[in-house]
Simulated scan of single mutants.
Amino acid sequence: MQVLQAVHLQKFYRAQRKNVAAVQNVSLQISAGEVLAFLGPNGAGKTTTIKIIAGLIVPDAGQVKISGRDPHRDPKALRSIGAVLEGNRNVYWRLTPEENLEYFGVLRGLSQRVARQRSQILLERFDLQDKRRALTQTLSRGMQQKLAIAVALIHDPQLLLLDEPTLGLDVEATENVKRLVREIAAEGRAILLTTHQLDIAEDLSDRVAIINQGEIVVEEPTTDLIRQFSGTAYRIELEQPLDAERFHKLGSLATVVDQLQIHLPDPETLYSVLDILRPLPIVRIEKEQAKLTEIFLKLVREGSV
């Protein structure tokens, strides 16, 4: 089931007596349970697109539907959206976590009783029960971010907009947020993730859409995109250095990077190389894969030529 359908979006702004295209013919779809990483350099049109989806900007052309409703014509569609914005703009620092959840629950149409019930469930789930009556400003950055995600979920939205959800977090807090994102998607929510931390996007996303100069330059399943840009070479890492005899035998089949690493540009030689190495202990054998960061930079630079 498709939760988000954004079709042929366009938005122009007036600058220096000219119409400047911020968004040109952008289409995005996200199904229930799916994480779409929406990536692009600064000024590429990401923010404008997200504001159109969230109902904050009216497009000059195109249409948005969230669970079948247009947020620009039907205010009920906005109840299907939860958002976590980059920075500290998601919660009130002088309220407690409990107060934040109840306040935003009522603000988004829940009765006070239901808001209180859901806030207790979310505090427990996000491991914030012990801090429920502490001022939000006294919480760690990781706890504040977990609270922001909980607040975004208080009204049970079907689409979650996540903008830089792990920015500024330490390793442990980052892993906690990543786990929560996976769990939220597994519950059947659609997630639109924007981040400049492309390793996070690679870890979390099912699909990637890259926007540049207002246009989508690629939209693919994450694994397919990485596969397209990956080569066929293999790398073998050894536990102990090569001896002179094996080093010599490998000369025509592989490139010995150092005494502990071997690079195989031709995958057809893999098993011949393994026969030569036998019985040396091997730490790992892996196919060399492109990283999403490399792919992103290549596509953006090609698109800007």
Score class of each variant (00 low, 15 high):
residue 35 V to T: 09
residue 36 L to N: 02
residue 36 L to P: 00
residue 41 P to F: 03
residue 42 N to M: 05
residue 45 G to P: 00
residue 50 I to V: 12
residue 59 P to M: 03
residue 60 D to F: 03
residue 64 V to R: 00
residue 64 V to Q: 09
residue 76 K to E: 15
residue 78 L to G: 05
residue 81 I to N: 02
residue 84 V to R: 05
residue 85 L to K: 07
residue 85 L to M: 08
residue 86 E to P: 04
residue 101 L to F: 04
residue 103 Y to A: 09
residue 107 L to T: 10
residue 107 L to A: 09
residue 113 R to I: 10
residue 114 V to N: 05
residue 122 L to A: 05
residue 128 L to S: 04
residue 128 L to C: 06
residue 144 Q to H: 07
residue 147 L to D: 06
residue 148 A to I: 12
residue 152 A to H: 08
residue 157 P to N: 06
residue 160 L to G: 01
residue 161 L to E: 00
residue 170 D to F: 04
residue 172 E to D: 09
residue 172 E to T: 13
residue 172 E to Y: 11
residue 183 E to Y: 07
residue 184 I to R: 08
residue 188 G to F: 08
residue 189 R to F: 02
residue 191 I to N: 06
residue 196 H to Y: 06
residue 200 I to P: 01
residue 203 D to Q: 13
residue 211 I to G: 03
residue 213 Q to H: 13
residue 218 V to M: 10
residue 218 V to F: 01
residue 221 P to A: 05
residue 222 T to I: 03
residue 222 T to G: 00
residue 224 D to L: 11
residue 228 Q to E: 12
residue 228 Q to C: 11
residue 233 A to M: 07
residue 235 R to Q: 15
residue 245 E to I: 13
residue 246 R to Q: 15
residue 251 G to Q: 15
residue 256 V to Q: 08
residue 257 V to M: 14
residue 261 Q to W: 02
residue 268 E to K: 12
residue 269 T to N: 14
residue 273 V to D: 02
residue 276 I to W: 10
residue 282 I to Q: 08
residue 294 E to D: 15
